[in-house]
Structures are given as C-alpha cells and as structure tokens.
C-alpha cells in the first residue's frame, strides 16, 4: 500500500504545512473578512429597508386614522348643522304662522268693529232718511206737508216697533 511508504511522509507533511498555512492566511486575512463585510452590509441594508418599510407603514396608518377621524367629525358636524337649520326653520315658520294668525285675528276684529260702526251710523241715519221720504211722499200723495215734528214722532215710533229695521 503506497500510503504506508514512510519515505513519502516528510514531503507530504512539509507541503501540507506550507500549503495549509498559506490557505489559512489567505482565508483569515483576506477572504473571510471580505465576505463577512459583504454579508454584514447586505444584512444592514435589508434591516434598514425593513425598518423604513415599517416606519412608512406606521405613518400611513396614522394618516389613515386621522383621515378616518376627519371624515367622522365632518359627518357629525354636517348632521348637527342640518338639525340646527331644520330647528331654526321650523321655529321661524311657527313664528311667522302665529304672527299671521294674530294679524288676521286683529284685522277681523277691526273689520267687525268698522262694520258695527257703519251699521250704527247707518241705523242713526235711517230716521232722517225716513222723515225726508215720509215728507216727500205725503206732499206728493196728499198735497199736504205735515209738520216736521209729527213726522219725526211717527218715524221714531215705527222704528221703535222694529228696532232692527
């Protein structure tokens, strides 16, 4: 078996130590720190990006929340102002209606008063008018002009029988 040939041991061991030593130095001083730094950079970049994404997400959540509250507040405000307007308008219309009512009532009242006055006036005039008519009628019918006093007495007597005409 060539593996047990002792004479080949020293060159193998010497070259093993030389080559492995060189490899160790190359790996320890050059290759591994470089790869380590590349991996670390990448890890940092990934973590940074993830953190940034997290922040943006949080910000957008905050924005969405404030938007939500703004919408809610606006809706609430709209509702209260609508209710207020409806209330005001109904009060106004009630007020106007009552005003109109009062005015109509007072107008009716004054109209009634005026009618009553007119009626009174008409009633007071009716005696004189009747006296004139009686005088004219007596003159033209019988040719005699009765005295004013007798006519007045007769008319007022008649009017007393039918006070309402």
């Amino acid at each position: 078996m060539p593996q047990l040939d002792i004479s080949t041991f020293t060159p193998q061991i010497i070259w093993l130590i030389i080559t492995f030593g060189v490899l160790y130095l190359l790996m320890a001083k050059l290759a591994l720190p470089r790869i380590g730094s590349i991996l670390e950079q990448r890890q940092n970049r990934i973590e940074d990006n993830l953190a940034m994404a997290q922040n943006l997400k949080r910000e957008s959540e905050v924005d969405a929340e404030s938007y939500e509250t703004a919408i809610f507040e606006a809706r609430e405000q709209a509702r209260t102002s609508t209710q207020l307007a409806i209330k005001e308008m109904s009060e106004e219309s009630q007020r106007r209606q009552s005003e109109l009512n009062d005015r109509l009532v007072s107008e009716v009242k004054s109209a009634e008063e005026r009618i009553a006055q007119a009626k009174k006036k008409a009633m007071s005039n009716i005696g004189e008018m009747a006296e004139d008519i009686v005088l004219d009628a007596a003159e033209s019918l019988i040719g005699i002009a009765p005295s004013k006093d007798s006519i007045k007495n007769a008319v007022s007597a008649k009017l007393r029988e039918h006070p309402e005409g």
Partner: peptide, 27 residues
C-alpha cells in the same frame, strides 16, 4: 529531510488555488 514537490504537493497547491479563487476572486 526530503521535501520533494510531489503529485500530492501539486494537488494541495491546486486545492489552495481553487479555494482562493472561489473565496477571493468570486466575491
């Protein structure tokens, strides 16, 4: 001491070269 450069040494050297190429040049 016999420190001859043998076929074994050659492949040790090649192994170091390949490892270095992979770990240094590839990155």
């Amino acid at each position: 001491f016999d420190a001859s450069f043998t076929n074994s040494s050659a492949f040790m050297l090649l192994s170091v070269i390949c490892a270095t190429a992979l770990m240094v040049l590839a990155v």
